[in-house]
Design a protein around this nucleic acid. Sequence first.
RNA 1: AGCGAGGUAGGGUAGUCUGGAGUGCCCGCCGGGCUCAUAACCCGGAGAUCAAUGGUCCAAAUCCAUUCCUCGCUACCA
Length: 494
Amino acid sequence: MTNENFYITTAIPYVNAAPHIGHALEFVQTDVIRRFYDILGYKTFLLTGADENSLKNVRAAEALKIGTQELCDRNSLLFRQLAEKINLKYDIFFRSSNKDKHWPGAQEIWKRCVDSGDIYKKEYEGLYCVGCEGFYTKDELVDGLCPEHKTKPEEVKEVNYFFRLSKYQDALLQLIESGKLAIFPESRKNEVLSFIKGGLEDFSASRSAERAHGWGVPVPGDPSQIQYVWIDALTTYINGIGFGTDMEQFKKWWPAQLHVIGKGITRFHAIYWPAILMSAKVELPKAIFAHGYLTVNGEKMSKTIGNVINPLDVLEKYSADELRYYLIRDMPSFEDGDFSIQALKDRANKELLGEIGNLVSRVLTMAERSGLQKYEGDNVLEKKLELEKIKTTLSKMELHETLEAVLSFVKECNRYINEEAPWKLSGKPLETALYNLLEGIRVLSILLYPFIPDTAGKMADKLGTKMGCIEDCTFRGKFEGKVVKGAHLFEKLE
RNA sequence: AGCGAGGUAGGGUAGUCUGGAGUGCCCGCCGGGCUCAUAACCCGGAGAUCAAUGGUCCAAAUCCAUUCCUCGCUACCA
């Protein structure tokens, strides 16, 4: 057992629209890691939430003819519902429109960066598309026109605050090359390194309040400017645990052991964020895990195609465990993966029901019929458990590999039944076979807990055992739980 | 264009660093076994010029060179 703290975060998504299935993937991945660290004995804390200060939210609200806060309230609720329904075990759902807890921290960070001399005023010149309300670089334009609106962007000059990112180029390089800030997977780490080596430019850290429609965190001492959304968004990771408002709690959990993010925002987390923290003289997070994106039936998700999958709809028809299992099992942790309902059903029927549910069902039937109250025997089946592989793949964040290693033990249990044929046995040989199988299921209930917590709990209940931790994943020579078969763990999906 | 990652059976992957029979896993397909179990479970089989060419070596998916193809990153996208 360890007493170390483990603070983990999901990215905080823009809430300009309802959650899609990609958000569900991130929630599940983060939760699996968190729960694994739970059974490893860490004291864990998980932050999730919503980035509400984006201009996208302002625009989305205007399109719907409602207030921005109302839109954020509405959509944040959907994200929170998703978190609940998918069993994301979060400790805090933190919204960046929270003026009491978020603004003080975001402004404190800003002041500290000013004190370090890293924020300065500069005239910003850029190509601004009125339709997009955003700036474009020359490379992004198609024939000199905005790729979306096919209009010529205006040249706009505006005085903004800039963050002196260039100053941190060497420090960032050293930080990431040395692994002091770990980036999973390796390929993303390489991308970040090559980006840094290409030379870092200072970035615009504020916008005019006018252009931001007055929405966002004001720059301390200059109400005409609003903080650039990324600065305020990143600080939710520290503000949510008390930076600027409850430094005691903040010190308890920070630094984060892991930020889980989508691959598209790697740069902000691996470059901007550590630079801001260095400037503000705050400790740095330990690791970043960038997952891939989901396609749907082989196509990129898009509103235009109309193939966006809302995970809340999926959870109307399928259980949290079925969705969680599928997302981890079929999606490589780091690569893009393809989502399809058919594949989800196949996994649920073949593996959750056919292998896990059926294993429990056949063993508990035989155990009940045996009439035994306690079971003893030698630990032959335990040798098939690859606990080391489970731990090493987890430490590399290869969650699909971790799950596969757990599942291969399920297969060994089923194989063991076929080989031993306990239905033909009686006396000591029967007791030994049942002992091994019951211990096997008990261990599985622990190892499956991070992935399918509801089912794992049911398994422990059926065995009459308590949910254990990693130290309990060994066979103990004796099984004394009170076995009750009860209902099936899964029903077949048609 | 530059930098990076890849191309292994019908699909998806591991193996490559540290060369040693195409070795493994998942889905799909075909055949058999079992009857404890939710038509679930177990075993066996078919299916691959390991992208191509050239080289090093007793020996190459693995090392070297070249070519072709795919994907990612290249300043504000989960």
